[in-house]
Design a protein around this nucleic acid. Sequence first.
DNA 1: GCAAAAGTGTTGTGTCTACACCCATGT
DNA 2: ACATGGGTGTAGACACAACACTTTTGC
Lengths: 224, 224
Amino acid sequence: MRTRPTHVTLAVILQVRDNRLCVLLWERAREPYAGRWALPGGYLGERETLEDSIRRQLAQKVDVREVAHLEQLETRSDPERHPSEWQLATAYLGLVPTVADPSIPEDTAWHPVHDLPPMAFDHESITLSGRERLRAKLSYTNIGFALAPESFTISELRAIYVAALGHPVAATNLQRVLVRRGVLEQTGEQRRPGRAGGRPAAVFRFRSRGLEVTDPSAVLRPPA
Amino acid sequence: MRTRPTHVTLAVILQVRDNRLCVLLWERAREPYAGRWALPGGYLGERETLEDSIRRQLAQKVDVREVAHLEQLETRSDPERHPSEWQLATAYLGLVPTVADPSIPEDTAWHPVHDLPPMAFDHESITLSGRERLRAKLSYTNIGFALAPESFTISELRAIYVAALGHPVAATNLQRVLVRRGVLEQTGEQRRPGRAGGRPAAVFRFRSRGLEVTDPSAVLRPPA
DNA sequence: GCAAAAGTGTTGTGTCTACACCCATGT
DNA sequence: ACATGGGTGTAGACACAACACTTTTGC
């Protein structure tokens, strides 16, 4: 039989926690890269889809039902990426809403993406690719639904966008952009102000909980 | 040893020919899918990168130097995608400039993407994914450089964009958008008019021949 | 009343489309 | 002259950022 590479699936699971964009990592106990942090994942099972595989792997780390969005990122193939094995890796991007606090095993932890620990293999660069994909899609899709809770105020949503994008976002404009595009809608409820007072905030939700391109940005678009 | 899937690389090679967006296909002689048309590609070589692999496979079909841009599309893993073998496929998108007319083998041919012949495996859907990626990137990157010749008039470039996008594009606006973004520059030369007369056309070229995002479209972008 | 937080009104800017108009050439 | 194809000028639509201002609450 022809020699074949092994194939693993990996996931960049991102969640905004404590106003920081975090990634779920586990600490390797064994060589190679013992003591370093790695993305969750594992070997592709026989006659298994890549997506089924990563969902199965994740089930061991987080409650998969908490993953509100999952998409394929890219497949890495550098023969040197694993020191002792010829291994391909297909990476996925997974997003978990802010409020969820899935129980995770002992050896796993959430790490801020802007301050990653020493990582195994090429996982740091894969993590950064995942963040870039998220940042890009926040601008032209409704992907925020996968980071936000079921319902929220604009302030809460703003905090999520700020953490994910890594730069200031004005609440005023965030609201107007997302409402204009039909991404957000009001639930009709209001949130009571805190001790400090202030006007009660309107509660919003994402109109759709599936990925949609909301700003085709289609320059050179077809005439109406 | 753990059972492992085979892994192939495939390429969606696109070129505008005769004002139509075409894809390079070869006709399968053997089962499965004998007589149907397939994307060029083949098995991943030992300790070979996916990109190296597809370049090697392509070298047998087209002069690889003609491929002005190559990027990874996605990896397909449906266990039913190959009738008799557990096979993963990583697809690439490759673009060839209009003028190039690489010699290709007997059993390969260019087919218009809007009128594909019966295709093998999941190659039709991969081809359509490739076209979507191209169409999207034509709007917000300088990727046109990979479809256009070294230098060209706006009319010629317009024909290429029309073929690739599949809808009318106004020459006036195409020029202004691309010049405003700094994607195009004039060479200073002029093209003599044809028999029918007309004003001589200015000759342009792409300022860069590497992929660049020219319209970050970054709504919610950071304050200057 | 006053501070705090939320939300609206308004203005200015930049990018894009559409269309009228002007330019340079061949016959 | 005039048809043909290339190019420019300009006006309108739209989306967005910025910021002043108003609303609604707690204290």
